[in-house]
Amino acid sequence: MRRAKFKAAAVAFIASATLASATLASAPAQAEIASGAVLANTCFSCHGTDGKSAGDMPTIAGKSEDFITRKLKAFKSGELEATIMNRIAKGFTDEEIAALAKFFSRR
């Protein structure tokens, strides 16, 4: 039940960014770039391309979806303290966090 709901929310989120544009824009849509990728790309500047860090930031590629989700939510709530990730995580909705977790867990 909980899982199904979560999945539905993630799908709905991914759909919202891309489908909204695809269906409403007058031009025909081809395979669009998943919004998860667009969200995740901005993280690469610190965490490395695809989350494979080249420096001191942790590599997040290949961590489990659950691990990434838990960490980001803990940074967001302040339960877990970091130098900068609290400030960053607060900028993302739970749906976006789910999309990010999905993206990086599959790298």
Partner: peptide, 9 residues
């Protein structure tokens, strides 16, 4: 591709 841009963040 004839599609609109996605949501920026």
């Amino acid at each position: 591709r004839g599609a609109a841009p996605g949501a920026p963040k």
